[in-house]
């Protein structure tokens, strides 16, 4: 088990999200950076979608009640085990009673906001409606359907599994994306794109959008050029997905994120492609982001690129695992 010792504000148990319950009004939830979650699990020999703890606020301290193999991925929060530095994005081993502290991210080659504490075997909370992710609105899933609190004992599964202490180079270095020095995400136009003024359409692609402090797992509220439809739009409610860029009446876009409701009625000017949601999920409030237009084929190629990166990591890490286990 993992005991939450300090600083659990907004930390939640997440996996790759809940599929199959949209027809009950249940949103997907899941890790804001699915690549970091999958990479941490690959390092530990887990299924890519094993549950981990997503940590958006630091410092954060846990104590391992039993010997545990773990990896901290996502933002570099200078992980330290009983005060001794351990590298980020590495499989490490903790002895029973050791404490792991994650600090406020400092200057880094990658500006990111969320860390993932992955453990061998995964966080062992019950599967609810097909997922271990915390469903905030429904108050179920995750650890008792809520963010973690100091004193919580979070169950882990077979945490002391053997394996080599190797790391992964974070995917942002192999899969970089920026436009004019500003981190970018690729966007496909959505249903109401043509209903916006030509000026609004141009602004969508040209503006370096500021991610305001009012941005969280529900949505990223952006500040920049005002986006106006040609005529006011009132839509019938319909299903939406993480990545949808809605434009409420005020003209400042909101990108729906993992805890967003699964339906909506605001005009949609575009949708961030699924392959780039991990970048967006790590973009810090106060930073800027650009939307890059792309084609359907380019969007699918981007998804295939992510898949290739994960497959390669799994293949090479898998070789290391077999070597570490004496060829078993």
């Amino acid at each position: 088990m993992i005991e939450i010792v300090a600083g659990a504000a907004l930390a939640t148990v997440q996996d790759l999200g809940r599929v199959g319950a949209l027809n009950l009004g249940v949103g997907v939830a899941g890790a804001m950076d699915p690549m970091a979650l999958a990479a941490g699990n690959i390092l530990l020999g887990n299924e890519e979608g094993a549950a981990a703890i997503e940590i958006p606020v630091f410092p954060f301290t846990v104590r391992f009640t039993e010997p545990t193999r773990f990896a901290v991925t996502g933002t570099d929060c200078a992980p330290a085990l009983d005060g001794k530095a351990v590298p980020p994005w590495f499989a490490c081993r903790a002895q029973a009673g050791q404490s792991l502290t994650l600090s406020v991210p400092g200057p880094s080659a990658w500006r990111a906001t969320r860390a993932y504490l992955c453990v061998a075997g995964g966080i062992d909370v019950p599967v609810v409606l097909g997922s271990r992710s915390t469903q905030m609105r429904g108050a179920f899933g995750g650890h008792e359907g809520r963010p973690l609190q100091t004193g919580d004992l979070v169950p882990t599964h077979a945490a002391d599994r053997a394996g080599p202490d190797v790391g992964l180079v974070p995917p942002v270095f192999d899969l970089p994306l920026d436009v004019d020095g500003v981190p970018a995400v690729r966007v496909l136009p959505a249903a109401e794109y043509d209903a916006f003024t030509p000026q609004a359409q141009a602004s969508l692609w040209s503006c370096a959008w500021k991610i305001t402090p009012q941005s969280d797992r529900y949505g990223f509220r952006l500040a920049g050029d005002e986006l106006k439809p040609r005529v006011p739009l009132e839509l019938r409610s319909h299903g939406i997905v993480p990545g949808v860029i809605q434009v409420p009446h005020g003209g400042q876009p909101i990108i729906q994120m993992r805890d967003a409701q699964p339906s909506g009625g605001y005009p949609k000017i575009g949708v961030v492609i699924e392959a780039d949601l991990w970048r967006l999920g790590q973009a810090p409030p106060g930073s800027r982001i650009r939307f890059a237009p792309c084609t359907w084929d380019e969007a699918l190629d981007a998804a295939a690129g992510n898949r290739r990166w994960l497959d390669k990591a799994r293949r090479i890490a898998g070789l290391q695992h077999r070597a570490g286990e004496g060829g078993r």
Partner: peptide, 13 residues
């Protein structure tokens, strides 16, 4: 760690 060895995406401390 005093440094790292990189092989493809894999790091060794």
């Amino acid at each position: 760690p005093l440094g790292f060895l990189r092989t493809g995406p894999i790091l060794q401390a």
